[in-house]
């Protein structure tokens, strides 16, 4: 995970980037929409993995920061008529600040207690979005977000999303591959030992949580502008569970795992919903298969397959 990109990885990244840039040219409106949404969820899942995969805690309330970023940006744009830049930045900062406060309390705990405290905080955020009708319009939803004219176009918004998401992913890559990222992994692997070698574990986990909150806020702000609305369901625990599944599906021990998990789960939900009302069963069965046969997620499976093919075990980072 901490290895730099291999030559193969570099080429792969370049190819994907080119494909993303070319998508609107070759694709339909539908592909642009779906590409935008998928990118947003990829960033959302990736941000969560900073808490799970790197610092080893399971957040069950990550949707809170997604929702705060989305709501604050949407409300500032629409109700107060702010320009995009300050609205977007304020939305993301609001998410980050909330994450900083919540993380202060949560990082005192670990494991299941950590998960439950994050859940409790996120449900408070949900309750506030639900109850504060004069500002958020409660469960009617904050419908009809004013998107700046510059972005009020499918293709332009898509490119805007590509730029923001790719830049965010790059920043996350740098963070996780810095000394900070390596210390985080040490914290995950062994809280006690990390403490011995002089890592201030609680502060590290706090920092990881705050960074995760920041990028969840970015994803949320983008999402609100994409669907031109924010809804209380985006803060509910089921949304947190969905992004958690995305992250785990892809694999938490790989940088790119959550991105792949988000893309796959997103498409699965879309496609199964198209063919059957029993899509929960389809999803459940897929989950079971992964858990029982692919415990390290899709990326883990990929690694094992390539390792088998090459007869060696050295494809780190080349996801």
């Amino acid at each position: 995970m901490t290895a730099p990109l291999t030559a193969f990885g570099k080429v792969a990244c370049l190819v994907i980037l080119l494909a993303l840039l070319a998508l609107p040219v070759i694709g339909s409106d539908y592909l642009i929409d779906i590409g935008t949404e998928m990118l947003i969820f990829a960033l959302f899942a990736l941000s969560l993995n900073l808490i799970i995969g790197y610092s080893g805690n399971v957040s069950f309330g990550h949707a809170a920061y997604f929702a705060i970023g989305g709501y604050v940006n949407a409300i500032l744009l629409t109700t107060y008529g702010w320009p995009l830049l300050p609205a977007f930045v304020t939305g993301v900062l609001a998410a980050t600040l909330t994450a900083a406060v919540v993380a202060y309390f949560c990082t005192r705990l670990t494991d299941i207690y950590f998960a439950m405290l994050t859940l409790a905080f996120s449900m408070l955020v949900w309750a506030i979005a639900f109850k504060w009708r004069s500002v958020t319009h409660g469960d009617d939803g904050f419908v009809g977000v004013t998107v700046p004219a510059l972005l009020d176009d499918r293709m332009r918004f898509y490119y805007f999303t590509v730029i923001i998401v790719v830049a965010s992913i790059a920043v996350l890559w740098v963070i996780t591959h810095s000394a900070f990222g390596r210390s985080l992994v040490a914290v995950r692997e062994n809280l006690g030992r990390a403490g011995f070698i002089g890592i201030h574990t609680r502060r590290m986990r706090w920092q990881a949580f705050v960074v995760a909150g920041f990028f969840a806020g970015v994803a949320g702000a983008l999402f609100g502008m994409l669907i031109k609305g924010m809804y209380v369901e985006s803060a509910f625990w089921t949304q947190s569970a969905q992004v958690l599944i995305m992250t785990l599906l892809g694999g938490i021990y790989s940088f790119f795992g959550p991105i792949i998990g988000a893309a796959v789960l997103f498409m699965l939900e879309r496609l199964t919903n198209e063919y059957t009302e029993y899509w929960p069963t389809v999803l459940g069965v897929i989950l079971l298969v992964i858990l029982l046969f692919l415990p390290d997620g899709l990326v883990g499976l990929g690694k094992r397959l390539t390792a088998k093919a090459k007869g060696k075990d050295k494809t780190e980072g080349a996801t």
């Binding site: 190819v15 994907i16 694709g27 339909s28 539908y30 592909l31 498409m267 496609l271 899709l298 996801t319």
Partner: peptide, 18 residues
Amino acid sequence: MKRIIFSAVASTALLAAS
């Protein structure tokens, strides 16, 4: 894994074009 993404995208593209 890239293949998974691409095949998913490709299949939806096919559907869209159907």
